[in-house]
């Protein structure tokens, strides 16, 4: 199970994922530069957080044209796992591997802080290590994280149980107060129709060591390692 982390010039959570996978979980992991076309045989591709090309235009709008993205799309088409975190999620919606879009937060301000997520579906390679309905705590850090999709798309996501994480409070209750950015249906993370491409705004890689506030993110990467 090799993890490959795509590095765009403005990625800034690439090293955090790398450190967690390597040191907290002991998994083989390497960096993949955005201008290369080869995924070097990696089994799981991670698109990390950051500001891929500054994102002055629209988050992820330029990153989708990076040479490596053709290989990432092909990897996904073959049914092999791809996970986009924060900016990575934005890139995945821009390139069309995931539906919808991430708009500016309802507050029109950058928002950072721990949030609670309810795990909605554990029958995926990304969530099999969690319990159904489990509430986990991970931080968000984004200015454009408000998930939007047309009603028919949202209905489809719900019918197919493709919403994997929803913002909630500590007890797992869904409410507007517990939604940090105004995401429709309180969506924090979702998966593609074939169940192999996942995007989420919160940062599980920042919760892989109790020294740093918690380890609720570990199970996500452990699920992936087991799936492969």
């Amino acid at each position: 199970m090799n993890f490959g982390i795509v590095v765009f010039p403005g990625s800034n959570c690439d090293y955090d994922v790398y450190w967690g996978l390597k040191n907290d979980l002991g998994y083989p992991v390497r960096f993949l530069w955005h201008r290369q076309r080869d995924l070097e045989g990696c089994d799981v591709i991670v698109l990390p957080g950051g500001f891929a090309h500054g994102d002055y235009l629209r988050a992820g709008a330029i990153a989708r044209f990076s040479p490596i993205m053709e290989a990432v799309v092909e990897h996904a088409r073959q049914g092999r796992p791809v996970i986009g975190i924060c900016n990575g999620f934005q890139v995945l919606t821009e390139i069309g591997l995931l539906p919808g879009a991430l708009l500016r937060n309802e507050s029109l301000r950058f928002a950072h802080g721990p949030v609670y997520l309810r795990v909605e579906n554990v029958q995926t390679p990304f969530t099999s290590g969690y319990q159904p309905g489990q509430v986990i705590q991970v931080p968000i850090a984004h200015g454009q994280g408000r998930y939007y999709a047309p009603p028919e798309v949202l209905a489809g996501l719900e019918d197919e149980q493709r919403v994997l994480f929803r913002y909630c409070d500590a007890s797992g209750r869904i409410s507007p107060e517990a939604n940090p950015n105004g995401s429709l249906h309180h969506i924090a993370g979702l998966v593609s129709a074939n169940g192999r491409v996942m995007g989420m705004m919160p940062h599980p890689e920042r919760r892989m060591n109790s020294r740093l506030g918690g380890s609720d993110g570990l199970a996500l990467f452990q699920s992936l390692a087991q799936a492969a």
């Binding site: 967690g20 950058f110 740093l212």
Partner: peptide, 14 residues
């Protein structure tokens, strides 16, 4: 103020 700042990127923040 501080919620507008990312204070945990680089995963060093104890």
């Amino acid at each position: 103020v501080t919620r507008q700042y990312d204070s945990t990127v680089r995963t060093n923040t104890v």
